[in-house]
Design a protein around this nucleic acid. Sequence first.
DNA 1: CTTCCTTGTTTATGAGATAAACAAATGTAT
DNA 2: ATACATTTGTTTATCTCATAAACAAGGAAG
Lengths: 282, 282
Amino acid sequence: MRGASGRDPERSVELLWAGAGRGNRAGLSLERIVQAGVAVADAEGLGDLTMQKVADRLGFTAMSLYRHVPGREHLIDLMYDHAIGADPAPEPEGGWRPRLEACARRSWQRHQAHPWLAEVRGNRRVPGPNTMAVFERMLSVLADTGLRPNEVVAAAELVGRFVDTQALTLVEAAEEERGSEVSNREWWEARDSLYAKFDRYPTVTALWEAGGFDDPEDPFEFGLRRVLDGLELLIRERDEISDEITACQMCGAPVRQTAAGRRRAYCSRACQQRAYRRRRSS
Amino acid sequence: MRGASGRDPERSVELLWAGAGRGNRAGLSLERIVQAGVAVADAEGLGDLTMQKVADRLGFTAMSLYRHVPGREHLIDLMYDHAIGADPAPEPEGGWRPRLEACARRSWQRHQAHPWLAEVRGNRRVPGPNTMAVFERMLSVLADTGLRPNEVVAAAELVGRFVDTQALTLVEAAEEERGSEVSNREWWEARDSLYAKFDRYPTVTALWEAGGFDDPEDPFEFGLRRVLDGLELLIRERDEISDEITACQMCGAPVRQTAAGRRRAYCSRACQQRAYRRRRSS
DNA sequence: CTTCCTTGTTTATGAGATAAACAAATGTAT
DNA sequence: ATACATTTGTTTATCTCATAAACAAGGAAG
């Protein structure tokens, strides 16, 4: 089960959010184990992160780790937050868009530095302080765009997941190349027997001949652009509507139009009723 | 290694693209194994797909499967294409957008029917006929939008990956709930000790209090909308430019503007030279 | 009948996580 | 200093899987 720190998440909470622990000079320590774990994962990917390798790197037995960390999944929780690191201060100028783009690019950089981050899966991961700081930052950028609260959250998750996905694709590719004589490119180039079957797919064939597969767009840049454009459209839409203020047909008070649903003519239910009665009596 | 059918992909090509095999009435057969595999994965997810369980379901030993399938990863290749199934015919009316959206929704439906599809990872998977048919369809929708060939491919992959990602998130959640007393909602609701630490994140707190996490947007609908909007912007941009035709400043012939680079003033290199000579001599 | 091929079974190996028991070292109280 | 408790690391053992290798039962061909 990739099911995260599933059982006993409270241990993860404690470990992640505890103040700095004591440091036994010579022996093992949480800190040291986490660092070793990160080193192993950086070098070999999360799939090849074994308790044995982490322990070896420190000169101890695999079982020794369990005196400090409840288990592998908890270790991964800790490694994750450690690798995310402190969110760097510099905030770019400008509106929400350059700032959101900067969030995405910072995340992208973190994934370059620690490709295995994207391999940390599961919906039951306890976030640590660094993870939360990153989340906070992204939300704060989106918070003053005029989006509704749940849209802010949805937008942040869309962008976050987009970056994750692209990163995951890359790690998976890297992992496949590591410990395989051939590069992915070579591997695909060797699939002639497969391509031989592709006559019956006219568009695939046409695009192939038009060079559509030769010089691919950078999927990260391409996708990020589309996603941000899509969000911009939504945000503009909300801006227009929430900026729009009409006069109440009954009392003349300002009426703020909401984003969805039927246009409002009255400022309140009371005015709506008054208008109704007036119509009826006339 | 999630590294796909890594070694010996040729076997996957053969098995996927072979005509229908013979059927030993009583005994095992590729077909039967693949079906059993799909059934197991449908019920328990790909992570819990073991050769043992597949064999049990057919009343044979685990090792018996190896007489028909080279190994687990090859089996997964076969299951994938089998579960994708034949791409249904009905093509919606209208322009690229409703048709592309329909592709995305069909894919989404396939993922509902077989959630584990999203768990099939790796860049070295041999696609089967059904997989290719789906890809062909999506590309054909994008092919006549005015996008350049490599953009068509990038757009298809963006949409495809988007659906995959959302589906993956859902399976992971489902897998975590299966075989865990508590639902994900309950699990998160039980994390009070964690939330207690969140005072220092003002935006998170504000959004929480504003109910931004209570009634979340449907991530699939929300994201699909943004992605399609983003693509629409790009497609419009390309349309405008490639529709735009100016007159050659030298001979008046129509000049089709290209999408990128400096605007063209002349219809040909020859006219450009003529203009240059005229300027010099005057 | 003998020999080979197909198909299924039994046995065995190796990787990994981690539980349980054991042992050494380090504290702490008297 | 002595006796007991706690911490920290090690050894052993167990369990789950994939899959290699050897074995066996039936059928087909000569």
